[in-house]
């Protein structure tokens, strides 16, 4: 929900620049030009040498934390793992896309965090899907072939 709002907010400056470059009058006259930066940079945040307006991507930390939590959450039937993993994946992918649209605006470290969160989410999702598949396989196997199930898990005695 908030991501969509952010994205729509992001698109506005790009669309405006296209309109200006093609030297056409704006279609809707009521549309006023937004300021190029959303927020003034906070004090004391001068990292790197390029650009004072660098801010962190909004969901980078959340994606990383959710991606890490998703790994132990795989064990609860895989359901929580798949939920956290997919959320981390979506948040991370959205932030990576946002960074590529406007690389100067966001800080490099938060971009790396978002990418790591995306990859962690992918791994957790794959693990959870594998585990859910294994549960289904085992339960179906136990119901249809109890003898073979016993032999497989308890070994031949």
């Amino acid at each position: 929900m908030s991501e969509e709002q952010d994205n729509s907010h992001e698109h506005k400056p790009i669309d405006l620049s296209k309109n200006e470059s093609s030297t056409e009058p704006p279609v809707n006259p009521g549309f006023s030009a937004p300021p190029p930066f959303q927020q003034p940079p906070p004090f004391g945040q001068f990292q790197g040498g390029f650009g004072m307006g660098q801010q962190n991507l909004p969901n980078a930390t959340a994606a990383l934390v959710l991606g890490i939590i998703a790994l132990p959450a795989c064990c609860f039937y895989g359901i929580f793992g798949i939920v956290f993993g997919i959320i981390a994946w979506i948040l991370g992918a959205g932030d990576v896309k946002k960074y590529h649209q406007n690389p100067g605006l966001y800080s490099e470290s938060s971009y790396k965090n978002a990418k790591a969160g995306k990859i962690c989410g992918m791994i957790a999702t794959i693990l959870s899907v594998l585990f859910i598949g294994i549960i289904i396989l085992f339960v179906v196997g136990a119901l249809t072939h109890p003898q073979a199930y016993d032999n497989f898990f308890k070994g031949f005695h």
């Binding site: 790396k112 790591a116 693990l127």
Partner: peptide, 15 residues
Amino acid sequence: KTGASIIKIAYAGIA
């Protein structure tokens, strides 16, 4: 500085 890549590698290793 290289924290994100260390987390990625550790995560894949744990998986």
